[in-house]
């Protein structure tokens, strides 16, 4: 009988790996409180809450945050509609080119972001479309579709045929069946997919650098600070806030789809 307990070496390697994944993120939380404002000195010479107030009063941070939220909300809404339609079609019928449709949905996230970015940029250039909030949204919605699609397609598969037939036997037409049977069943999967799409869009930077004009989303703002640090303490605070804000939808999506075979987030 192979032993049912992990060897000590395996345990140490596994937990060391997890530590490697988490320590850098925890470090961000300490740096948000440091009194040092010119270098990345460790250990911090002192701790202060001052930078939270400074960040709160920065209009550029607020503008970037507002734009990010707006872009994420609209892209998520578009992705929810398009992703659900696609999932419904793929899961309800076998048709010619079905595999191609799944591939097409996954492609924007399977290819490196820079390809998606430069492809969109050259297309907007060729089409004479000026770079604006709209072009950012076009890009984001494109790669958010896959997240909604993945969650919805897994749930559609679990809706049983007999349930839909029973609904029809009881006199419901297709729309009523959708409203009273299908929607309640796929609701949490859509909510989870929407949350993940929101998190994905909120954080996206590579495609955005190619599709944005003068507008700065929060990740673009952070990127500028990373390349040319001017406001290190403010960046520290914003970084910590971003971590906290993205954790919420991820935890939410996990609890909504827990127990199913398709726990959300596996295929970012």
């Amino acid at each position: 009988m192979p032993s049912d307990r992990a060897s000590l070496g395996l345990k140490i390697a596994a937990f060391a790996g997890l530590l490697f994944l988490h320590l850098p993120i925890l470090l961000i939380f300490v740096y948000a409180f440091t009194t040092e404002d010119r270098t990345y000195q460790w250990p911090p010479p002192g701790l202060t809450l001052k930078w939270f107030g400074v960040t709160w009063n920065r209009p550029d941070v607020w503008e970037a945050l507002t734009l990010s939220l707006k872009v994420a909300a609209i892209s998520t809404a578009l992705a929810l509609v398009l992703g659900t339609l696609c999932a419904a079609a793929v899961s309800r019928a076998r048709f010619f080119g079905r595999e191609t449709v799944s591939l097409l949905v996954i492609l924007p996230i399977a290819l490196p972001g820079i390809i998606t970015g430069i492809a969109l940029r050259s297309a907007f250039n060729l089409g004479g479309i000026p770079f604006s909030t709209l072009t950012i949204i076009l890009g984001h919605a494109t790669f958010c579709i896959v997240v909604v699609y993945n969650n919805a397609v897994a749930r559609f598969r679990r809706i049983s045929g007999p349930m839909l037939e029973a609904s029809a036997d009881l006199g419901a037409n297709g729309f009523q069946t959708f409203r009273y049977i299908v929607l309640p069943n796929i609701g949490t999967a859509l909510l989870a997919g929407g949350m993940l799409a929101f998190a994905l869009s909120f954080d996206e930077v590579i495609v955005t650098t190619f599709t944005a004009g003068q507008q700065a989303t929060l990740p673009i703002w952070m990127l500028e600070e990373l390349v040319r640090p001017r406001q290190r303490p403010v960046t520290n605070v914003v970084a910590m806030m971003v971590v906290l804000v993205t954790f919420l939808p991820i935890l939410g999506a996990y609890y909504l789809t827990r127990g199913g075979s398709e726990t959300a987030g596996g295929g970012k």
């Binding site: 850098p24 993120i25 470090l27 961000i28 993940l196 998190a199 954080d203 930077v205 990740p219 952070m222 990127l223 990373l226 960046t235 970084a239 971003v242 971590v243 993205t246 954790f247 991820i250 987030g265 970012k268």
Partner: peptide, 11 residues
Amino acid sequence: LWSSYLVKVYA
């Protein structure tokens, strides 16, 4: 996996 890419690079 899901925390911000830029924040991870910054860390």
